[in-house]
C-alpha cells in the first residue's frame, strides 16, 4: 500500500576536497514509501534546482546493488539502517513520517571527500592494482578434471567474490581499516588454483599498498562484517592474516 511521508534531511554539504563542510537541513514533503533512498535524493535535488540552489552531489550507478558505487552514511550506518543492502536498495518505508535523516559521506582519511556526499574511493582501485589479479601465463591447457576444487573452497571463494568494493567496511570501521575488502580480494583468488600460485606475493603487495594509502590497523571489532552489504565474513581476514604472516616468515 503506497503511502507518503514528510522527512527532514540533514545533509553534509562540502564544496570541494579542501573546503570546510557543514550540515544543511532540508524539508522534503510527499515522499512515497515505495521510492528508494536514491529516488528520494533525486526528488530533493529537483526541489533544490527549482529553488535555484545547487543540487546535492552523490555517487550512484547501477541502482540494483551490484556495482558498489553508491555510498552515504545514513543515520549512523553505511548504506543506511537496513541490513545486507546497498544505499540504492534502501527504501523509504524504512523511515517514519516526520523523521530526521542524517546523511553523511564515508569518513576515512583514505577516502577524501570530492564534493558533498561523494568521496574518492580510488584507494581501493590502487590496492587492486597492487596485486588483486591473476597473471595469465599461457601454456598448454590442463584437463579441467585434473584439478578438483572442493565445494567448500568454491563456496568460500564465491562468498569472498561477492564483495563489490563499495567501501562500507572502511567507512564503518572505528580504525578506518580496509582489511575486510583486502581479505575478500585476497581470498577469492587464494582459494582457487589459478590464484593460489601467486597467493603469497599478492597478500604482501596488497597489504603493503593498503598500509601505504593510510588505512588503519584492524582490531577485529567486526563492525565491517555487520555493515557489509554483501555480508562478507571476517573469517576472510583470518585467511589474509595467515597468508601474509606465512609469506613474511618464508621470506
Amino acid at each position: 500500500m503506497e503511502k507518503s511521508i514528510n522527512v527532514t534531511l540533514k545533509v553534509w554539504r562540502q564544496a570541494g576536497p579542501k573546503v570546510k563542510g557543514a550540515f544543511e537541513t532540508y524539508k522534503l514533503n510527499n515522499v512515497s514509501t515505495d521510492s528508494s533512498f536514491l529516488e528520494m535524493m533525486d526528488q530533493l535535488n529537483e526541489q533544490l534546482i527549482s529553488e535555484r540552489k545547487e543540487p546535492v552531489v552523490f555517487d550512484h550507478d547501477c541502482r540494483e546493488g551490484i556495482c558498489g558505487m553508491c555510498s552515504m552514511f545514513i543515520n549512523g550506518h553505511p548504506h543506511g539502517p537496513d541490513g545486507e543492502i546497498t544505499t540504492c536498495q534502501l527504501h523509504m518505508r524504512m523511515f517514519k513520517d516526520g523523521e530526521t535523516i542524517t546523511v553523511e559521506p564515508w569518513r576515512s582519511a583514505a577516502f577524501p571527500v570530492i564534493k558533498d556526499l561523494m568521496v574518492d574511493r580510488g584507494a581501493y582501485d590502487k590496492i587492486i592494482q597492487a596485486g588483486g589479479y591473476v597473471n595469465v601465463n599461457t601454456g598448454g591447457v590442463p584437463d579441467a578434471n585434473a584439478i578438483p576444487i572442493s565445494k567448500i573452497d568454491a563456496d568460500e571463494a564465491m562468498d569472498a567474490a561477492s564483495c563489490i568494493g563499495c567501501g562500507a567496511c572502511a567507512a564503518a570501521c572505528k580504525n578506518g581499516s580496509a582489511m575486510l575488502f583486502v581479505a575478500a580480494k585476497v581470498s577469492q583468488l587464494a582459494l582457487l588454483p589459478q590464484g593460489r600460485v601467486e597467493g603469497a606475493a599478492r597478500a604482501k603487495a596488497m597489504v603493503a599498498k593498503m598500509d601505504e594509502l593510510g588505512f588503519g590497523n584492524c582490531t577485529n571489532t567486526g563492525a565491517c562484517e555487520a555493515e557489509c552489504p554483501k555480508n562478507v565474513s571476517i573469517s576472510h581476514i583470518a585467511r589474509l592474516n595467515r597468508e601474509f604472516i606465512c609469506a613474511k616468515l618464508s621470506d
Binding site: 549512523g76 550506518h77 569518513r107 582519511a109 578506518g176 593510510g214 590497523n217 562484517e225 555487520a226
Partner: peptide, 20 residues
Amino acid sequence: QNKVARGAEAYAVAGTQEGV
C-alpha cells in the same frame, strides 16, 4: 595510527552494530 586513519571529521551520528 587508527585515529589518523579515521580522518579529521567524526561522524555526526554513529550507529551501533549487532555482534560488535
